[in-house]
Amino acid sequence: GVSMAQVALGWTAAQPAITSVILGARTPEQLADNLGAMKLKLSDDEMARLNDVSAPQPFDYPYGKGGINQRHRKIEGGR
């Protein structure tokens, strides 16, 4: 019953190393929605699931296809 923005902000704020969260609201409605994250308390199971899907993947940049392509690209000079 909460928005994705509230879940994202709630999860981010619950991380041990996070001391504050910057809101990206552009409208009063978005601000009200973002502030609703203050009331959200994610369960241990919800936090674990979000942590699992947010964990960095070893095949991700700079080691995945994007990183490999960057390492082998031709560097051209001049304008």
Rank of each mutant, 00 (worst) to 15 (best):
T12W: 05
Q15I: 10
A8I: 08
V21Q: 00
S3D: 08
P58S: 06
P58I: 06
K39E: 15
V2R: 07
T19W: 04
N69Q: 12
S43Q: 06
L50N: 03
V21H: 00
D52G: 07
L9E: 01
K74W: 14
E46F: 03
S43I: 11
G64R: 04
Q15G: 09
P62I: 08
Q30N: 04
G36C: 07
K41Q: 14
A55Y: 02
E76V: 10
R49Y: 06
G64F: 07
S20N: 08
R26V: 09
G78H: 07
T27E: 08
K39M: 14
G77Y: 08
D52I: 07
A25E: 11
L9D: 01
D45H: 00
K39Q: 15
A32V: 13
L23N: 11
L50H: 05
G24N: 01
Y63K: 03
G64K: 03
A32Y: 06
A17V: 12
T19H: 12
L42T: 07
D52L: 14
W11K: 01
R79G: 12
R71D: 15
A13K: 11
N69R: 05
P58C: 02
I22L: 15
Y63A: 13
Q70K: 05
R71H: 11
R26L: 11
D44F: 07
T27K: 03
A14P: 00
K41A: 15
V53A: 11
A17Q: 14
D44A: 15
E46I: 03
T27Q: 04
T12S: 09
L35R: 02
A55N: 01
R79H: 13
R79S: 14
L50Q: 03
Y61D: 09
R79K: 13
D45P: 01
G77E: 09
A25N: 06
S43Y: 10
V2M: 11
A55P: 00
V7C: 04
K65N: 10
I18Q: 05
L35F: 03
P56V: 09
K39C: 11
F59P: 00
D45G: 02
G24D: 00
N51F: 06
M38K: 03
D44G: 12
L42M: 11
G78R: 09
E76W: 03
Q6E: 14
A17Y: 10
A32S: 12
N69D: 15
A55T: 07
S54T: 10
P28T: 03
T19L: 06
G67C: 10
